[in-house]
Design a protein around this nucleic acid. Structure first.
Length: 457
RNA sequence: GCGAUUGUGGUGAAGUGGUUAACACUCCGGCUUGUGGCGCCGGCAUGCGUGGGUUCGAUUCCCAUCAAUCGCCCCA
């Protein structure tokens, strides 16, 4: 048996409605914030990620899927979304668009060669956003607000937003120097990873999990203390706008993030979920004012974030989020081979009218047909046998009420539509077909509101 | 890259160096060839991830391998 590739997974039909609901919510929130979808290729020239994400990052140094194509060009399956979006932004000259602030979002698979575990796959999905063309702190705050709104719309509330600033180039350089000088005498006391980082990417030592409790790290200089006046002002304003929007956050002085391109604001959103373990970062992002120019575009500031969708799904499952239930309007039962031609005509007419409809294709017994109708969650069952055929009628059973009526064959579609339009006699609180269960004499249900006059008692 | 645990029907699983691999659920058929959900009866692994080895004999013991799950690092 051929199995799926390690670290990949199938989304089966029983799960897709959840994914569709998740994606729908994301698109709705994106519309509200006026971010427009951009779709870039799943693979790019390898060089894009080396230059964009950074040679020394873990992602590029050991996690990319690289392959040579038949023209002997090196390509890489995208491990993240920002570099491709920036490439497209430059290549398609979006900086010259009528709207000088380009607000874009993307959603789709990313690829990283890692050991799979909970909340981590080799092919995984991200939803990310990027805003180009303004270095206003308002846009940093908007991006964070947008991320928080997505979570709010999904009703994921148990999260924490951590934020920090590493400043622009000058601040970063000053800080880097200070950190190197500070660590020089003690570097041998840090873990082997940190010794490597010291040479290649000293900033990353700050968020080392191994040494995080060591005094050396605790007392290390923090990026915030090395910000230039401009950078400090930027950060203070970002914080101010977050406050004005009522967004809760925590300043994490050690937050630096793993990608080279960040400047100024960096942030993460963590889900407070035991089940996700160390993979509880559901969103990460920040500002990158030099990325566009370093990839050959005009000097253009940018700020963005990325969500891991599998981790969002875990968070959704922990709050018992269920997608829309599967159901059918109509399940047709044709009794007898002679009636199959007429039967398919009936079914097809209903489908052309827009009903969700299906039938039995295995010539099963009536009992089995009913079982199937139940499994498919069909609201109506229509039985078409010799008796009905003679009378030019069809037998329609309402699976909810158990009521059965014969309707003229050519009225089947109209009958079902009329029945479906009737307001459901149920309220969101008691969820019963009749409010006998909630003991109300009068119960006029408002199907729009999903409530009834009984007050849900 | 490092580490741990686990692989037995469609599912959850029990089990043993020896002849028919429990049990439960699902599913299928029948009781009931035009009315399901309940009940009763019957059926469903020639096989215990794969390949070697030990043995008279291996699903069971050993080795290797593959896969899954989880943890570390790092990330979404």
């Amino acid at each position: 048996m051929i199995q799926k590739v390690k670290g990949t997974y199938d989304v089966l039909p029983s799960e897709t409605s959840k994914w569709q609901a998740l994606e729908r919510t994301i698109r709705n929130v994106s519309r509200i914030y006026n971010y427009r979808e951009i779709r870039t290729p799943m693979f790019e020239q390898t060089e894009l990620f080396h230059r964009g994400v950074g040679e020394e990052t873990d992602i590029v140094s050991k996690e990319t899927y690289d392959f040579m194509d038949r023209g002997n060009r090196s390509n890489t399956l995208r491990p993240e979304g920002t570099a491709p979006v920036v490439r497209s932004f430059i290549e398609n000259k979006l900086y010259a668009d009528k709207n000088p602030v380009q607000k874009l979002y993307y959603m789709g698979p990313m690829f990283r060669y890692e050991r799979p575990q909970k909340g981590r796959y080799r092919q995984f999905a991200q939803f990310g956003a990027e805003a180009f063309g303004s270095d206003s702190p308002m846009l940093d705050a908007e991006i964070i607000g947008y991320a928080v709104s997505v979570l709010k719309a999904l009703k994921i509330t148990d999260v924490s937003v951590n934020i920090n600033s590493i400043g622009e180039e000058e601040s970063k350089a000053n800080y880097k120097e200070a950190l190197i000088n500070y660590l020089a005498p003690d570097i041998s006391s840090l873990c082997s990873d940190c010794q490597t980082r010291y040479q290649k990417n000293p900033l990353r030592i700050l968020d080392c999990k191994v040494d995080k409790d060591s005094d050396v790290l605790k007392n290390a200089p923090k990026p915030l203390d090395y910000l230039t006046e401009e950078s400090k002002a930027h950060f203070v304003q970002v914080i101010g706008y977050l406050d004005s929007m009522g967004i809760d956050y925590k300043i994490d002085k050690n937050l630096v993030r793993g990608l080279d391109y960040y400047t100024h604001t960096v942030f993460e959103v963590n889900a407070n979920l035991e089940t996700l373990g160390a993979q509880n970062t559901i969103c990460g992002g920040g500002r990158y004012n030099n990325l566009v120019s370093s990839l050959g575009g005009p000097k253009t500031p940018g700020v963005g974030f990325a969500f891991g969708l599998e981790r969002l799904m875990f968070a959704l499952e922990s709050i018992n989020f269920l997608g829309d239930p599967d159901y059918l309007h109509l399940y047709l039962m044709i009794l007898g081979d002679d009636l199959k031609v007429e039967g398919t005509r009936i079914l097809n007419r209903c489908r052309l009218g827009g009903l969700f409809a299906d039938m039995d294709y295995l010539d099963k017994s009536m009992k089995a047909k009913f079982k199937q109708a139940e499994i498919l969650n069909a609201r109506f069952v229509a039985i078409y046998g010799e008796e009905e055929h003679q009378a030019k009628m069809i037998n329609v059973k309402d699976q909810e009420s158990g009521q059965e009526v014969k309707v003229p064959l050519d009225q089947l579609y109209n009958y079902i539509v009329a029945e479906l339009m009737k307001p459901a006699h149920s309220c969101s609180s008691c969820s019963e077909d009749s409010c006998d269960s909630c003991g109300s004499d009068e119960c006029d249900c408002d199907s729009e509101e999903g409530t009834c006059n009984c007050g849900g008692k």
